[in-house]
């Protein structure tokens, strides 16, 4: 359970972007509406050099959100304490405004599979994930945010809905939640549910950050739509609409635009951030 001395997140309720090194100069000279930046923790676990120098410079100007992709919190195996130690070191010197990770697994035995893999939602997995979150928060001495995944399939064995599973994790561990609206849209399309219903069932009071991003469109072997979380395109209009719905229900929150593949020139990403800022200004007004 969360200790009263733990640090809580403090990102501004404005637009942020996922930081890409090719945008370093543009971001420092013309950030536009961008109020904060998110980095992938694992890219800053080297010993030195340009990545860390750039991060130190950015952290002097922007609140930083550290977003982990390698902790495997949903894994069956114990957490990798070496990795947790590297995370503690990074958060220790950087002292970021927020730390978040995924409801997913990526490590099996000695292997790292470099993808966010899904888990069933059962009492067994609930207890295990809660124990992992406890261990992370205790080791790091701060509250973490846990992100909802994008789903392509369902586990027959699941007995919890995803919003209920996440809400129960937040209740048991005191962690916050990161609500990825694009993931909600992807999962709802892929599993034939209604994205607004998912948002309405979500523990919005626990949400400390929102993600939007682009996805690819495909179909499965039965001709059913299959959306893929690629982070390689602009955010589609239905996802912007879902963001509006979410902000109307939850009030202003930090909103991040993710663009990780086929990364565009800065003005394109800045314009996406401006759309997120405009959505926020509509609820703040």
């Amino acid at each position: 359970m969360l200790d009263a001395s733990f640090k809580a997140g403090s990102l501004p309720a404005g637009a942020g972007v996922g930081y890409k090194p090719q945008h370093f100069t543009d971001i420092t000279q013309a950030p536009g509406p961008v109020k904060w930046l998110e980095i992938h923790a694992e890219n800053y676990m080297g010993d030195g050099g340009r990545p860390l120098a750039q991060l130190r410079a950015l952290a002097e100007r922007f609140p930083i959100s550290v977003h982990g992709v390698g902790l495997s919190i949903g894994g069956e195996a114990p957490l990798d304490t070496d990795h947790l130690g590297r995370l503690k070191h990074l958060l220790g010197w950087l002292d970021p405004a927020s730390f978040s990770e995924h409801l997913a697994w990526s490590t099996h035995g000695a292997e790292f599979l470099n993808d966010l893999l899904p888990l069933p939602y059962t009492n067994t997995t609930l207890a295990r994930v809660a124990a992992h979150i406890d261990q992370v928060q205790t080791t790091l001495g701060r509250r973490m945010l846990l992100e909802n995944p994008s789903s392509y399939l369902a586990f027959a064995e699941s007995t919890w809905s995803e919003p209920e599973f996440l809400a129960e994790l937040a209740r048991r561990t005191g962690c916050g939640l990161l609500l990825d609206v694009n993931n909600v849209f992807i999962s709802a399309t892929n599993l034939k549910t209604t994205p607004q219903d998912y948002i309405d069932a979500f523990a919005l009071t626990e949400v400390g950050e929102i993600h939007v991003g682009g996805h690819d469109e495909d179909t499965d072997e039965y001709g059913a739509p299959l959306l893929i979380d690629s982070h390689g395109k602009p955010v589609v209009d239905p996802v912007w609409a879902l963001l509006d719905h979410t902000l109307t229900c939850a009030g202003p929150l930090p909103v991040l635009v993710e663009w990780d593949n086929d990364v565009p020139d800065w003005p394109v990403l800045r314009d996406e951030a401006a759309r997120a800022a405009a959505a926020l200004s509509r609820v703040a007004a």
């Binding site: 993808d115 893999l117 392509y152 027959a156 599993l191 499965d220």
Partner: peptide, 29 residues
């Protein structure tokens, strides 16, 4: 077994998304 789509079909192409993500991301790395 035990992975399926919303109509109860076994996951085929849907499981392949994960296969593809893993291999493509590692090849790109």
């Amino acid at each position: 077994d035990g992975l399926r789509d919303s109509d109860g079909h076994p996951a085929g192409a849907r499981f392949d998304v994960y296969r593809n993500n893993v291999v493509v991301s590692l090849v790109e790395a």
